[in-house]
Amino acid sequence: MSSGAVKVWYLVHKWTSLVCTLFLLMLCITGLPLIFHEEIDHLLEGERPLPAVEAGAPSKTLEDALDTALARFPGTIPLFMSFDEDQPVVNVTTGPRPRSTVDEMNFISIHRPTAEPVRTPDDEGVMHFILQLHTDMFLGLGGELFLGFMGFLFFVAIVSGVVVYAPFMRKLRFGTVRVSRNSRAKWLDTHNLLGIVTLMWASVVGLTGVVNTLSTPLVDLWRADQLSEMVAPYEGKPVPTAFSSLDDAVATAMAAAPGTTPQFVAFPGVRFSSNHHYAVWLRGATPATKQLHTPALIDAETGALTEMRSMPWYMTVLRLSQPLHFGDYGGLPMKVLWALLDIAAIVILGSGLYLWLARRSLPAPGTRHAHEELLPQAGPAE
């Protein structure tokens, strides 16, 4: 590669890094506790006590759980019911109308065998604050898209950093850290080494983060494309005045897709359903398939299955990106690995910022020690 091409790649690396570094530092720092969000929630909230089940007592139905939630929040209607993966608990969301805002919604967890309330989830805790800062900086969709653009710049910085690193490595063995040189040289070598070691992980986390920031536009695209086709025969029909059994609706959906389990139910009128349907969202029952969702539309008046189809490729990419971004696929060992790599990324970003700031105070050309800085440079923020 010519020296002119290397210089262009160097400038690309320098400026993409400079623009995104502070935001990437924020994402890495907030992402660290989010990797262990389940463990931290358990530590902060303690063990969720479940009501005792008397021997021989008949198990309650989903309708009973729904009645408990509606009794707790009078004057509201059901919006969503989600199913806990680890405990016999359903989480019910209610609101004053089908298109209620988040601020208007009420949330409660119900023990399925007894239909007794367990706990109203806390959406105002420290982990909720960290999650909001990490996903959109409390700016909504605009914040999500902005952070997505920062993630894209981060990926460009990674690619350009590899290109710039290649000629640099011709002068040093891989893994060399020049501890006998000045502080800037040591940090440069450390920065380059960690950058190459974490290359694949940083690329995966950066790109999945970009995909996750597109969640709202992708869901809106699915609703305008796929969902509108699925409910077209029912267009204009009002919300039924009498509803068929919720338990039967879930059973019908599961029977149509053997080997799946319910993830959540969207009630008639909400954005993931239609005015005339229960939308029963099913997921695979194995670790490899549980992120793959299939919506089944059940006529809320008759209880009949009217439509079921797999999610399009872009929604599948979105679903697979979400747990991969936080290392949720392999249990605690993978989370620990993700955390160590995240710490390495923080060191990379911090050292890149230091290298850029330190270079601004270098001796003028021709002065003592100035020659020590004439080696090829590869610092992301230089």
Score class of each variant (00 low, 15 high):
Leu27Met: 14
Leu145Phe: 05
Thr260Arg: 14
Thr68Gly: 03
Ala65Pro: 00
Pro238Gly: 05
Arg119Glu: 07
Ile40Lys: 02
Phe154Cys: 01
Asp299Glu: 12
Leu221Ile: 12
Ala251Gln: 13
Pro380Ile: 00
Leu22Pro: 02
Val205Trp: 01
Leu62Ile: 11
Val317Gly: 02
Leu218Ile: 13
Arg97Trp: 10
Asp342Glu: 11
Asp41Pro: 01
Pro51Lys: 09
Glu45Gln: 14
Ser160Cys: 06
Phe83Asp: 04
Met26Ile: 14
Thr101Glu: 12
Gly284Ile: 10
Glu85Arg: 15
Leu66Lys: 03
Gln291His: 15
Gly331Ser: 12
Leu172Thr: 06
Trp313Leu: 15
Trp281Asn: 02
Thr198Met: 05
Thr289Trp: 07
Ser273Lys: 01
Gly259Met: 12
Lys60Cys: 11
Ala57Met: 12
Ile40Asn: 02
Met150Phe: 05
Glu235Lys: 12
Gly236Ile: 11
Val210Asp: 02
Thr190Val: 14
Asp86Gln: 12
Gly175Asp: 08
Val270Ser: 03
Tyr234Trp: 14
Leu221Phe: 12
Val8Cys: 00
Pro78Cys: 10
Thr216Ile: 15
Arg178Val: 10
Phe36Asn: 04
Thr216Phe: 09
Val159Thr: 04
Phe73His: 12
Leu320Ala: 13
Pro238Met: 11
Trp281Val: 03
Thr94Trp: 00
Trp338Met: 01
Ser244Trp: 09
Ala300Gln: 01
Val19Arg: 04
Pro117Leu: 05
Leu324Pro: 01
Gly352Arg: 01
Arg97Gly: 06
Gly143His: 06
Thr261Ser: 09
Ala52Leu: 14
Ile348Thr: 06
Glu382Met: 08
Leu357Met: 13
